[in-house]
Design a protein around this nucleic acid. Sequence first.
DNA 1: AATAAAATGTGAAGCTTTTGCATCTTTTGG
DNA 2: CCAAAAGATGCAAAAGCTTCACATTTTATT
Lengths: 142, 142
Amino acid sequence: MDKTDIKQAGLKVTLPRVKILEILEASGKGEGPRHLRAEDVYRRLLERGEEIGLATVYRVLTQFVEAGLVCRHNFEGGQSVFELDRGVHHDHLVCMKCGRVVEFMDEAIEARQEAIATQHGFTLEDHTLVIHGLCPRCQKPA
Amino acid sequence: MDKTDIKQAGLKVTLPRVKILEILEASGKGEGPRHLRAEDVYRRLLERGEEIGLATVYRVLTQFVEAGLVCRHNFEGGQSVFELDRGVHHDHLVCMKCGRVVEFMDEAIEARQEAIATQHGFTLEDHTLVIHGLCPRCQKPA
DNA sequence: AATAAAATGTGAAGCTTTTGCATCTTTTGG
DNA sequence: CCAAAAGATGCAAAAGCTTCACATTTTATT
């Protein structure tokens, strides 16, 4: 994931785009959560001393999603989260209390979805599966 | 679903609440789509000549959800849709083009989710599964 | 290096949803 | 059935996230 990918997406290689890609790459690699809201990306850019506008962050993230470099998820209430697209599909387990996110992938579920779509005459283009619960830590008495 | 349910939820039986419940009951029974946005409910109230504020619609829908009378879903970008809770869990197939919604329920998927949550130490409280695709009508060449 | 095309920053605007507060309605108990 | 208390409503304003408009700056091209 680097400048080459940006270019191949038909986008010019600009500083904001490169920096945003860096932020996304750093996420989930020990540096905090993998899934970031636009606001989080913006804040991290500021922390790194980059003067990039929030509107640009939104624009670039949207372009990256369209280019297939990034995935967007709408976990809940209005806010979208973004993560680098690693090319492997997966779904999410989200803790209702602390917001922790765990990824998983289940062949059986994937297969059943395909079957259900077909059964109703639909073509399956995409899907969203989010399991909400309490993570091990949050289940413990406060 | 009537005034009794409102009362049992610890809410006063007011005209707005009764009317909103009526709108939800009428939906999905031949009268348009089953899933309504707050705005849709509001519009239908106006059509029926009821002078109920949009803020009240939001407040009442939220209270109904908390009382378990209504389910809220966040199909996509920001907007929530509401439907009367019939007590039977189900997931959704949503057409990406026309927005048509088909409900389904699959034991195999439900079981797998429980297994996955447990496997990661999570307690399963709830889940959201939305399959996006093209419905039979929208697959046909325009 | 000059030019054309595209991207950015800023601030304002858009949308959905929530909130504050004065007023009105329902409920309760006499 | 009426009065008081508790709760609900409407309106308008505010909030939160995201997008837009447009002048300015940067990238890619020749």
